[in-house]
Amino acid sequence: MTRFLLRRLMWFAITLWVVVTVSFFLMRAVRGGPFDNDRALHESIERNIKARYHLDWHPFKQYLHYIGPLNLDEQGPEFLGGDGTRPFGGVLTGDFGPSFKYRDFTVNDIIGQSLPISVSLGVIALLWALALGLTVGIASALWRGTRIDVGLRLVATAGIAVPNFTIAGFLVIGFVFVLPLFPVAGYGTWRHLVLPGFALGGPFAAYIARLTRTGMLEVLSQDYIRTAHAKGLPPRTVLLRHAIKGGVLPVVSYLGPATAGILTGSLVIERIFAIPGTGSHFVNSALNRDYTLAMGVTILYTVLVYSLNTAVDFAYTLLDPRIDLEES
């Protein structure tokens, strides 16, 4: 258990280091910074700005400063020539630095404001995807071959085959314009999150339904289900106690990729519904070459997805006694 977590942690550290290092130097190597795209700045102003963001330093020094944990600027520790007011900083201390575009904000400020919004949207999407996907998948497996099954499978496959912004388009036409039940966009109340959550979770609900159906059919054809029936258990007990656990195992391992996918999808959905979440900031920052913000969000989401994946793997071993963490 401890060994499993330690090993995970080690690989994670390596990955993150590679991601940060490669993108940091790529970013510096690319011609054109965040400040020279709209209009030519006066040379002295440009020098000031560059100094403020330490872009005048040697890239390697910038890198060390960005990573931390020692602060290399004038507020850094005394033995590095600073005044010692703020000796630590950088990514290792959880400080992603100032945003290049939103001049008065740090990346931490922006993430701190937007992340709760994105997380609540993501949680709603995931919960709804799970609830709908599992129900449809189990129903489809139980009534396999009937019209219900064929219909549900068709809807599920169509759900996978359409981009989520198209689903969003249909939802807006249906539930905002034709039936005015929800606000078209913005953020504030729970009603603002219903349609976005629905559109974001839709494709994942469809995929979970497919996984569940296949998983359930696989389990229902197992010998031990026949044993359970031969023991005289009522069909409901056979389903709930013997079949569901094995049938939804594939869904559990899909939760990791699903979370990553929902984070990705939120880039689009937050834009459509004008939700001020982290995803929309990320897209804007990438387009605006706000590199610190883009890197901050990338690092944050990597940490998020990686820890969720580890949690999912851990949960998997609780559900399936045959899996041994030490060996895997």
Binding site: R226, G246, L319
Partner: peptide, 19 residues
Amino acid sequence: RGNEIAMIFQDPMTSLNPL
């Protein structure tokens, strides 16, 4: 079933629920 008439199957590897 399982009460007055019980059954045992060929493959004990797959006849017990692994979970």
